[in-house]
């Protein structure tokens, strides 16, 4: 398996094949950030939310800018259309932890503030969720770095 093939599947929005290919790439090259970045999105589209969340946490812990600096048009990022579809679901009253976390993940590729908004909503559904708390800490720290006035408290 190779990264270029994964890139093609991802570009063609064939998320099943993209997820399989990028997982193989990461198996051989665990530090391949490009593969990880695209795998996170692909996994959200094939129902592997938990694995996607784990990888997302790893990546933002390692280098949050790699996601935040995404240019949706220049980088052909599908997140705008994906969040659009998923937000439609939430309009009909589905506010599960998974849906909110997934929206939080996808929004970080376009807008960090919206991402924080969805992870905070996820926290309302499950206040003691460790991973959501840890993710929010990293996101807010990033916002704080961007703006000195942003108040960041590590979750208790």
């Amino acid at each position: 398996m190779n990264e270029m093939l994964g890139n093609q599947y991802f570009m063609a929005r064939n998320y099943m094949e993209a997820a399989n290919t990028f997982q193989s790439v990461l198996h051989d090259e665990p530090n391949n950030l490009n593969a990880k970045k695209k795998l996170i999105i692909s996994l959200t589209q094939v129902g592997k939310y938990s694995k996607s969340l784990d990888l997302f946490f790893d990546l933002i812990n390692e280098n949050i800018d790699f996601i935040v600096d995404t240019d949706p048009i220049k980088d052909d990022c599908p997140c705008a259309e994906l969040v659009n579809n998923l937000e439609l679901v939430t309009k009909y009253g589905t506010h599960s932890l998974t849906t909110l976390q997934t929206l939080g993940i996808l929004w970080l590729y376009c807008d960090i503030n919206k991402s924080v908004e969805y992870f905070e909503k996820a926290l309302q559904v499950k206040p003691n969720d460790e991973k959501t708390n840890a993710i929010l800490y990293i996101l807010k720290k990033k916002l704080s770095d961007n703006s000195q006035n942003y108040d960041v408290k590590y979750p208790s």
Partner: peptide, 13 residues
Amino acid sequence: VCFTECPIALVLN
């Protein structure tokens, strides 16, 4: 074809 039968993807495969 770019989505279903990308020639380069076929070569890669």
